[in-house]
Write a protein that binds this DNA or RNA. Structure first.
Length: 157
DNA sequence: GCCAACGTTGGC
DNA sequence: GCCAACGTTGGC
């Protein structure tokens, strides 16, 4: 059974257009340094899981497109790079602490803004919208996925 | 730049 | 194991 996720990224770092320009329109989701988010990738994500590609910390926060998990979790390369801000001296190749999946962009959609998401009662319980939520990866219920990818994205707004 | 909310760290 | 201090996230 497929699962669904919302994954945040800062477009100033890696936005949906950047991923579309990459080979296979695929990016390794490096840089997650939160245990809960890591555990979602490590323990629950399967190839084919649906992903809402979310832009955060930018002028227009919101869902920018649809993507899918295209590779199971494996060690995050940036944890071993001393020049990376994501370097983790406590992590070793034998016992890596951080992992990431690969994410392939399926299509760019119109930007469904955070303010718009908040207007829909169907999304009142969307994990990413809950007060105080800071997790960069959150689960999405099948009904929420259906609503967002169906009605919402097809609407012209 | 502010600040609420939450996660992590480290002394004890 | 507690918890204060500090750091980070992310919308505004």
């Amino acid at each position: 059974m497929p699962r669904y996720w919302l994954m945040k990224t800062e477009p100033a770092v890696v936005g949906i257009d950047d991923v579309l320009a990459m080979p296979q329109q695929t990016v390794d989701w490096w840089g997650v340094r939160n245990y809960q988010a890591r555990n979602f990738m490590r323990d629950q994500m399967q190839v084919g899981d649906g992903v809402l590609f979310y832009h955060s910390s930018c002028p227009e926060p919101g869902i920018a497109g649809l993507a899918e998990v295209s590779q199971l979790a494996y060690p995050d390369r940036t944890q071993f790079d001393p020049d990376s801000p994501y370097f983790d001296p406590k992590s070793t190749p034998e016992n890596p602490r951080w992992v990431n999946v690969d994410v392939r962009v399926v299509k760019k959609t119109r930007l469904v803004g955070l303010d718009e998401l908040r207007t829909h009662p169907e999304l009142a319980h969307l994990r990413a919208l809950q007060k105080g939520n800071r997790l960069s990866i959150t689960p999405v219920d099948p009904a929420e996925w259906k609503f967002i990818t169906g009605k919402l994205m097809k609407a012209s707004k």
